[in-house]
Amino acid sequence: MSAVPISWYLLLSAVLFGIGAIGALTRRNGISIFLSVELMLNAANLTLVAYARQLGSHTGQVIVFFVMAVAAAEAAVGLALFIAVFRQRHTIDVNRMNLMRW
């Protein structure tokens, strides 16, 4: 079995991260932004696991563990905030949330 070089995993991870970044910056729907952020987090996770394999150490996997936990917490709180905002504005279009205009 020919093994896949780690660099390919890293490349994939970078591209996924890029896609996620574009999504986070350009979508108008708040939920969609969140989804893009989750995508970025996953890309980072892939990088960490790839290095864990390369270096033969468990540390990378441990970090992924923590990242997942934090991502969960973040998603929960973020969605709760969205709910709260939605109750006031009846919209989750981020363009409409512009009270801090000059």
Binding site: L25, I33, V94, L99
Partner: peptide, 17 residues
Amino acid sequence: GRFTTTGNVRNYALYFF
């Protein structure tokens, strides 16, 4: 400079990035 404070969250995200 105050024109950078658009109030638009996505702009801020862009600055962030």
